[in-house]
Amino acid sequence: MEPLLSVRGLTVTFGSFTAVEDVSFDIHAGQTLAVVGESGSGKSVTALSIMRLVELGTRGKIERGEILFRTPDGDMIDLVQQSEDAMRAIRGNQISMIFQEPLTSLNPVYSVGDQVAEAVILHQGLDKDAANERVLEMFRLVRIPEAEKRMAQFPHEMSGGMRQRVMIAMALSCDPKVLIADEPTTALDVTIQAQILGLMRDLREQTGAAVLIITHDMGVVAEVADDVVVMNRARVVERGSATQIFESAAEPYTKALLASVPRLGSMAGRDEPAPFDLVEYQS
């Protein structure tokens, strides 16, 4: 099957610094791909490059590579070659994104309902009433309790978990083909993280959207990903299905990374604490 989104040979620089080098991967409809790596690996820059947000306000530049996206009409277009106007029509509409900090990703001066409605009005050309209908539907989809009442609330009146649900509702409001989630649960408490991950998995099945999840957390990867791309120092180190990566990683970096991941239950049956059995990794 032809992929929905195909990144080929992507290289992104900030001045003389290469943040992403020769990165390639494919995402298919209905699939979740996790790009995993530690800080500075280039995973977030990769996500921003797909949205073509990396060049705005920073010195970032897409140096080489293609980002092929299959439009709803079935054409393959290269996002790197699109004009800013064309990208604006794609962002939030066909490809949407959620961010790490639900605390700050919502505008404090508008009610959450208005903010989601605005995205719908912008892309779908609905009137205010139809947009509000859609918002209510989305709030129910992401299981915000008392959705109608919540629509009138302001971000500061909501908890972090509820705000992230609002962000997800906003991201899904225009039926995107691809959802990019940049560390969507990192700022959340563990019980709330579990809820959001469950929700994302459920929604992917319901909407058929492809999900690109950017994370540093191997636990999150194991919970949601079908396929995994491991990044280190701007490059893809290893790729494979989630089970392949977790059970038979081939690359030394992946092995070292996995060895340092704390796993719940790994100490079962042992009375005394024990250090990690670290694997040496020289880059």
Partner: peptide
């Protein structure tokens, strides 16, 4: 709390 911790093993999903 324990149930919510993601487990780094895709088979234990």
């Amino acid at each position: 709390l324990l149930d919510a911790v993601p487990i780094a093993d895709p088979r234990a999903r």
